[in-house]
Design a protein around this nucleic acid. Structure first.
Length: 831
RNA sequence: GCCGGGGUGGCGGAACUGGUAGACGCGGCGGAUUCAAAAUCCGCUGGUGGUAACACCUUGGGGGUUCGAGUCCCCCCCCCGGUACCA
């Protein structure tokens, strides 16, 4: 703990009537924190740890207001937990790989690395100006080899375990720029740079078998304290379903394997749909130029799910039939643009009677729609109007399934098909394996060597890391390392022959999947993680945007389990509690450069100081809701700080001496002041700890400041109560507006750092009241109020209510039918 | 399309477990201070009617449950996030 005597020279001479000057007092506080390493922490088994982590930023150039919100929330909670006595870790780093750096390189001809490092330097300065209590010793950037080498190392381990594997998957391809495009770079089906129509291509890529962990990822959601909506989104994303794999024979060709969750509708299958890239489709195209043309047309669609679902569903029959295993019927095989080769088997069975998408397709192409499920209540349905999608019906026109409900029909047909060897019960997931290959430069190189003789080999551990060359020039859009022989050409570690390095890089979600563990031991050069991770991890509270509810958070959970199974860590989940922060809006819509409605945090810091920015952000709305930016609201926050400053300065200017008070002999106003204070401490503590609603905590302190300003009592106990109020208020506000409170704490006569002081405690005796107010309603409408003793019995309340003048007016001559008493709250008289 | 969330005064929001709708702040109006302005301080401020006391209406729209609904249930509208290569 640092005592003031050691740092006094840093402060101005105290003049109680100094105006509030955020610039100098914030600089002084920040300097003191930095010089004394106030937020640097070490593992201390004697103390309980609290690991508070905010999603680290992509170094895009400068902080945007969403960052400021995210990091203010994290800093407020970290400082609060520290005041409760926890050993708090709050680190910060940089999610430094990604596309914007490449775009900047193409546009401005600067290497992505130097652009990134410059941005990091600038943004680090901004974070320091905001006064966030980070342990800067632990700072990391994911683009540094000492970071990504461990990711490469783990990947080689996963290759050996078979969790990393290679298969083809679709990408967006620009035929002019000769490069792969991200979904974001495809604007209405065209390349964002050259406006060429984008094609879909199937290329070989690396995958991680996240589906092997699907059940555990699902089950472990019950172990974490996350918002229910995020858990629901993840459950739906994983999408566990119980169904069957069924084999359809195709005379003269390989059979088609399909998966269905509705084997009870097998008798209603009237066609099959396959992907344009399916081998059977390609074979048909050889015979039929029209089919070839259609396949070509199918390639003109985006790979994104939203685009795929919204586009017009198109198909073409290939003139080959499949045999339905349940009834031997021959049904036509169609190529359909909404079936993708990369997902499942690239083939589906279609039951237009009982699936809406199949129904629309069948309607369009005049394919038979057959009813095989009927309503259980015996009513009739109209398949001309739409499909009948339900699991509540019973089978019809289905031979052995007729009259059976869903469960019975499922079992009957499953037994039947399994007995015939034409398929089996199967649990399936909507979740697909994680494609980690990116055909881009600014990412961690995938540590693989491609040898014509030996195949795909992991780079031997001794040769790691595979370092990404940072001094590169962009010629066009493609990745420079794909043409760089000095990087590419290598000898095979197995046969010694010529080989090539993999030039794809990792998805940047790889880096952000484990940084939270590396923060525990960022200087460890011998291993990915060490025992220190065991002290801090898992993260106690993780804070970030709701937009990460599925992908990032699911990948990080998966990666954590991979590290656990590698023996690197003991826990199964990375983030115990999650706080998803809402977006920052301006005039009700998202800020964007094109709309010109962006707010630059730097301007605000320059004009008002960090405390005002922090206060406004925390006051404007609760963290989980979106926040609408308001310039006048910022003024209001600044005004509050000035009032707080002036009120404390005025208090310390009066001579309080050794003022004290005796709880037993206070007058009514003094009691009321202390009641207000301790009610506020009670509420604010709950708001900070359980509810995480800092806006109401701030509002409560504003009320308290209003009350204490009106508390004009110059007696000795009065002064002492005022000191108690200001001490508590400054402590309660310190996590939110740390600079001004740091200063006011000393002005109030304390010689320790406020960050090292304990959070204020409620004095239960101050909360005791004699009388309370109760509301009286007539037929549920408020008609009167009354004072009763604090623990008045029901009948006392009722009798008092029925004597109330206002109430009697409303009752009039009507007989009272019923009286409802909610003790301590209200009396409702029903007439 | 699918999954998830949201909609309360002129504005941001409060109302935590079905129990006083609108705390706190912004804005607005009026006043004090000032030569004047800024800043600051004090008062009023959901809508409609009324001189007033007061009454009625009001939580996106429609219906329901309940003594009582912003809160629970059903239907609809609008906005936002995600949708697997934006991070």
């Amino acid at each position: 703990m640092i005592k003031y005597w050691s740092i006094l020279p840093l402060f101005h001479q105290l003049d109680p009537m100094d105006p509030y000057d955020p610039k100098s007092l914030e600089a002084e506080a920040q300097q003191l924190w930095a010089d004394n390493g106030v937020f640097e922490v070490d593992e201390d088994p004697a103390r309980e740890s609290y690991y508070c982590l905010c999603m680290f930023p992509y170094p895009s150039g400068k902080l945007h207001i969403g960052h400021v919100r995210n990091y203010t929330i994290g800093d407020v909670i970290s400082r609060f937990k520290r005041m409760l006595g926890f050993n708090v870790l709050q680190p910060m780093g940089w999610d430094a790989f990604g596309m914007p750096a490449e775009n900047a390189a193409i546009k401005n001809n600067v290497p992505p690395a130097s652009w990134t490092y410059q941005n990091i330097d600038y943004m680090r300065g901004q974070l320091k100006l905001l006064g966030f209590g980070y342990d800067w010793k632990r700072e990391l950037a994911t683009c540094k080899p000492e970071y990504y080498r461990w990711e490469q190392w783990l990947f080689t381990r996963l290759m050996e375990k078979g969790i990393a594997y290679k298969k083809t998957a679709p990408v967006n391809w620009c035929p002019v720029d000769q490069t792969v495009l991200a979904n974001e770079q495809v604007i209405e089906g065209r390349c964002w740079r050259c406006d060429t129509e984008v094609e879909r291509r199937e290329i070989a890529q690396w995958f991680l078998k996240i589906t092997d962990y699907a059940d555990e990822l699902l089950a472990d959601l019950d172990k974490v304290e996350w918002p229910e909506q995020v858990k629901t989104m993840q459950r739906n994303w994983i999408g566990r379903s119980e169904g069957m794999e069924v084999e359809f024979e195709v005379p003269g060709h390989d059979s088609l394997m399909i998966y269905t969750t509705r084997p009870d509708t097998l008798y209603g299958a009237t066609f099959m749909a396959i992907a344009a890239e399916h081998p059977l489709a390609l074979k048909a195209a050889e015979q039929n130029p029209e089919v070839a043309e259609f396949i070509e047309a199918c390639r003109k669609t985006n790979t994104s799910e939203a685009a795929l679902e919204k586009m017009e569903k198109l198909g073409m029959a290939i003139g080959i039939n499949a045999i339905n295993p349940v009834n031997g019927e021959q049904i036509p095989i169609w190529i359909a643009n909404f079936v993708l080769m990369g997902y499942g088997t690239g083939a589906i069975m279609s039951v237009p009677g009982h699936d809406q998408r199949d129904w629309e397709f069948a309607r369009k192409y005049g394919i038979e729609i057959r009813q095989v499920v009927e309503p259980a209540d015996g009513s009739t349905i109209d398949l001309e109007a739409g499909s009948f999608v339900t699991k509540e019906g019973r089978g019809c026109n289905s031979d052995i399934l007729d009259g059976l409900d869903f469960e019975a029909a499922f079992d009957r047909i499953a037994d039947h098909i399994e007995a015939q060897g034409k398929g089996s019960r199967q649990v399936n997931y909507r979740l697909r394996d994680w494609g980690v290959s990116r055909q881009r430069y600014w990412g961690a190189p995938i540590p693989v060597i491609n040898c014509a003789a030996c195949g795909n080999l992991p780079v031997p551990e001794a040769d790691l890391p595979v370092v990404l060359p940072e001094d590169v020039e962009f010629e066009g859009i493609g990745s420079p390392i794909k043409k760089m022989d000095s990087f590419k050409k290598i000898t095979c570690p197995q046969c010694g022959g010529p080989a090539e390095r993999e030039t794809d890089t990792f998805d940047t979600f790889m880096e952000s999947s484990w940084y939270q563990e590396r923060f525990c031991c960022p200087d460890q050069n011998e291993a990915m993680l060490d025992a220190r991770a065991g002290y801090w991890s898992p993260v106690d509270l993780y804070i970030g945007g709701i937009e990460h509810a599925i992908l990032h958070l699911l990948y990080a959970r998966f990666y954590h389990k991979l590290m656990r199974d590698e023996g690197l860590i003991e826990s199964s989940e990375p983030f115990n509690r999650l706080l998803t922060q809402g977006m920052v809006l301006k005039d009700g819509s998202k800020m964007s450069k094109s709309k010109g409605n962006t707010i630059d945090p730097q301007d605000l810091i320059d004009r008002y100081g960090a405390d005002t920015v922090r206060l406004f952000i925390m006051f404007a709305s609760p963290p989980e809701q979106s926040l609408d930016w308001s310039d006048t609201g910022v003024e209001g926050a600044f005004r509050f700080l000035k009032r707080l400053w002036a009120a404390v300065q005025e208090h310390i200017a009066e001579d309080t001496g050794e003022a004290s008070f005796d709880k037993q002999s206070l007058n009514d106003d003094q009691k009321a002041m202390r009641l207000k204070l301790h009610e506020t401490i009670n509420k604010v503590t709950d708001d900070f700890d359980r509810r995480l609603t800092f806006n109401t905590a701030i509002a409560a302190n504003m009320e308290l400041l209003n009350s204490v300003t009106r508390f004009e009592d110059d007696s000795v106990p009065g002064k002492a109560i005022r000191q108690e109020v200001f001490d508590s208020m400054v402590l309660m506000l310190a996590p939110i507006i740390p600079h001004i409170c740091h200063r006011l704490w000393r002005d109030l006569g304390h010689d320790s750092l406020i960050i090292d002081h304990r959070w204020p405690e409620v004095d239960a005796t101050a909360l005791v009241q004699d009388n309370i107010e109760m509301v009286i309603q007539v037929n549920g409408k408020l008609r009167g109020k009354m004072q009763v003793v604090v623990d008045a019995e029901r009948d006392v309340c009722e009798a008092a209510a029925l004597k109330n003048d206002q109430v009697l007016r409303f009752i009039g001559d009507n007989p009272v039918k019923k009286v409802i008493v909610v003790p301590g709250k209200l009396v409702n008289i029903v007439i």
